[in-house]
Computed example of a mutant assay.
Amino acid sequence: MDCDVVVVGAGLTGSSAAWQLAVRGLSVTLLEARTIGHTDGSSHGTSRIYRRAYADPHYIQLTGQAQELWDELEDRSGTRLRTRTGGLDHGTERRPEALLTLMKEHGVPAELLTPGAASERFAGMEFAGPVLFHPDAGHLDADRTVRAGVDIAAASGARVVEQSPVTGIEQPADGVLVHTGDRTIRAGHVVVAAGPWLPELLPSIGVLPRLPRTWVTQQQVFHFRHRDPRAAWPTMVYKEGIQLFGLPSGADGGSTPAMKVAQHDGGTATTASGRDRVIDPASRETVTSWVRRWLPGLDPEPVAEASCLYTMTADEDFVIDRIGSVVIASPCSGHGAKFAPLVGSLVADLVEGGRADPRFAFRA
């Protein structure tokens, strides 16, 4: 064997899996088709929502487990990766009252605010109904998180190879063969953490029973400058007719304070290799109109905009399971970033013979 495990993809999932595997004493080769930190996939940028508010108790529980591993990653790397701002959830379909009940049942601090109280506390934001506030929410830096995972993996003995796209994976009687353009690596296991390239790479692996259908959509994000540059806003999730989210932009929005606001739903079907990066004018109009109505503290003309990729499943659950010596890891559907260190741990458990979380197991 050339190594114990090959990890394909050095985004949030692959980098987290690599450091978890390496610190457990396994020999790891981490393959990245491009360069570490590239902007073509779903793991780049300085601003992703970090929150614990979910309408699903399973994910609330997982956010607690992830929080402990975020602490470990920050301690090991010596880098602050998360910024707590508090978070808001509102809109009739977001059901703030029901969320409050779930949060209390799981011991997560939260409170329900009236529209007036929320607007008074968060000047520049307006609301039409009850608002859930939970102080543990904030945002995380995806770029720094990827770099932290890669650096810890390398310091623990992992071999990191950039510009090395995988062209095929075979499962002989013992272990796997991972083919790239210029080499074949024999390993005990392979972790496929290819993000939006997963649907394109799957045919090279062969038939995987019960693997759910996955597809890729191109989404748009928009950055709006604060009218008051001293304003400090929480993150937010809104669901009523449309699904929107917002959070501080970080460096993604430029040199002056801004908020990133985007639709979670919608999007245009595409592929990781075939995306056009053209911003959908209908999405821009939807988001800017919403900002103009409900966020008067922002200038409603975007100062920056970009496209991003979602890898979707029909039930919006992740896919983290194994068949033979191949582990597939796709914490997808637009809400996986906050779980990155936990996903790395779940992947390492599978490599070491553990069982998949039933919610994330292969399924039709």
Rank of each mutant, 00 (worst) to 15 (best):
G188S: 10
G253S: 13
T217Y: 03
L202Q: 15
I185E: 07
R210I: 03
W233N: 00
S255F: 13
V237R: 05
Q220P: 04
D228R: 01
G181L: 02
P172D: 07
Q220L: 09
P234Q: 02
D182H: 01
H223L: 06
R230Q: 07
E200T: 08
A173T: 12
G206K: 00
L177M: 08
E200C: 08
A251K: 14
R186Q: 12
R230L: 01
A193C: 03
S255A: 14
G246M: 09
L208D: 05
L244P: 09
R213T: 13
P209H: 12
P199G: 09
V190Y: 06
R230E: 09
Q243T: 15
D182S: 07
F245K: 04
P199R: 10
G246H: 08
T184F: 06
I205T: 08
W197I: 01
E200L: 12
T217R: 15
E200P: 10
P234D: 04
S249E: 12
L208T: 10
E200G: 15
H226R: 10
P212E: 05
Y238M: 04
V191Y: 09
V207A: 14
W215M: 09
P196Y: 13
G175A: 07
I242M: 09
D228G: 02
M236G: 00
F222D: 09
V207N: 11
A231C: 04
G246D: 05
L244R: 04
L177V: 03
L211E: 06
I205L: 15
R210S: 14
A251H: 13
P199A: 11
S249V: 13
T184L: 05
R210W: 10
T184D: 04
V207S: 13
Q243N: 10
A231V: 03
R183I: 02
G188W: 00
L244Q: 10
G254D: 14
E200N: 08
G206E: 03
V216Q: 14
H226Q: 06
P234R: 04
P196K: 11
M236T: 00
P229C: 03
P234C: 03
R227V: 04
F222M: 13
H223A: 11
